[in-house]
Every structure is written in C-alpha cells, then in structure tokens.
Design a protein around this nucleic acid. Structure first.
Lengths: 126, 126
DNA sequence: GTCGTTGCAAAGCGTTTGCAGCCTA
DNA sequence: TAGGCTGCAAACGCTTTGCAACGAC
C-alpha cells in the first residue's frame, strides 16, 4: 500500500461514504458505477492491504458475507437484520463478557452480534 | 434422513461424543479413525439433513469454517482459539445484551464470540 | 426388490495468486 | 525510470451435485 492509485483512492472513497459495512462485491459494484475500470482482485488486494494498515476492519456476520468498514469508529458491535440482510452499527458494549472465558484460556477480543429486524422491517411487518 | 446407515450412525456418534463443535473435516477424520470408509460428501449431506431435523446446529465462527454441535445443549456461547483454530463451548451468558439494540429494532437472538488462546496453546507459549 | 444413501469425481463459487504490462512517485 | 499495482485468468479450498453402485428396510 505504498502508492495511491486511482483504483485504491476510489475504493477508500466508496467505503468511507457508505455508512454501513460493504462486501467486496458491493465495493466493486459501487466503484464501477463511479466510472472506474476495476477487477475483483484489486478489491481483494485493497481490503487486505487496508486491513493490515488498520484503515479498515473486516466484519464477519455468521451466515452472510464478510463486510468491511472503517476502523476509526471505536468499539462497537453489529445488528444483522434478517429482513433486508443489512448490517447496522450499535453504539457501546455490554460489560462483563470476559467472565465467560474458561479457566486457563486467554481472551484477546470479543464480538457481540444481535440479529432480528431493523426498524424499517418492523414497520413493514416482516 | 430416513434410513440409519452405518455412516450416519457413526457421524452422529462422533458429534455426540466430541464435547465441542466440529468442522466437516474433523467429523470426517474422526469417523475414519473409527474405522469406517467415508467420503466428505456424505458428511456434508449428513450435517445438512441432521440440521434440517433439528438434531444439530451450525456454529459459524468469523474467519473460519462452519462447525456443528448437538442442538440440545441450551443457551451458551463459543471461544475460538487462534492458536489451534478449535472452538470451545462456554457455559452461561453475559446478561444484558439486549440493551444494545437500537430503538425501533426487534431483537430475536444474539451471539457472543470470544477469541484468543485456549489453555493448551497458552501453555505452548503461542 | 425398492429406492434412499454412498463415494467418487466434476462442477460451483468466493477468494487468492502468477505474470506481463501499466502507471505512480 | 524503477518497481509497486493492476487485470486477467488460472489456481485454490470448501461445498455441492450428477451418477452408478450399494445396502437398509
């Protein structure tokens, strides 16, 4: 990730402006819509490089694709809507998760995922 | 899942006796060690069928393969070891997760995943 | 004996990699 | 101009599927 190419700048712009975690396919589609020639391999290399640099972070939702979001958002978790398959950020964190860790194990991180229906899908009666 | 074949019985026995969620590769390896000829396709077809029947449940760990465990275990969560890539059960649940749910959203379930090193890998100094 | 199940191999599908040419610094 | 980056296509790993033979009932 030494040179700032047209493709890489576009990928960063797309992720920055998305407002929600994006999959590689979504990144590619949005970048192409913005008018740049782009291969899927470039997207994979970019998210890998940007992840290694700490610029973005992977969000892996069980049963769905991996998405990517900017990593400057502080500690938070995600809500996965089964109605529209979108992922939303949730502020904050329920406290004492580390109490679950078995004796002798070393906890390094944790993930909390809540699934259900988002406000929009609740209104639509799904 | 109408007939109880030698292979299917062995797969159920292996999952029942494992004490932790198993991947298809682990199920195949354990079944073969138990002395049965077995193909990976049979394992996939068995876990799919047993899942549809409600006998087992899929455990999807971010960044790793899907594992399978018996579904009669009650509410619990999982620990993912980055040293040996195995998954362990953790008893109980940190209570107040629902407080994270955004206003207007409907929570239907939640998942808590802790990652780090298991006791064995801590001892090995990974 | 019937027909659901198995095992092999091929096909899918998302992700990664080799390589020649391109383009940023 | 050097060498990191791109795009294509092939390789890869996990999962699914087609099909002929097998075996539970």
């Amino acid at each position: 990730m030494e040179r700032m190419t047209r493709q890489r700048l576009l990928i960063m712009t797309v992720i920055e402006g998305a407002g929600r975690p994006l999959s590689t396919a979504e990144i590619l589609a949005l970048a192409k819509r913005a008018g740049a020639g782009m291969g899927i391999a470039t997207v994979y290399r970019a998210v890998k490089g940007l992840g290694a640099e700490g610029w973005l972070r992977a969000v892996d939702m069980p049963g769905s694709q991996i998405r990517y979001e900017r990593s400057d958002k502080g500690h938070h978790h995600h809500f996965h809507c089964r109605g529209c398959d979108r992922v939303f950020e949730m502020a904050g964190c329920a406290g004492d998760v580390s109490a679950l860790t078995p004796r002798g194990f070393r906890m390094e991180g944790h993930e909390i995922i809540i699934n259900g229906l988002c406000a929009g899908c609740v209104r639509k009666g799904r």
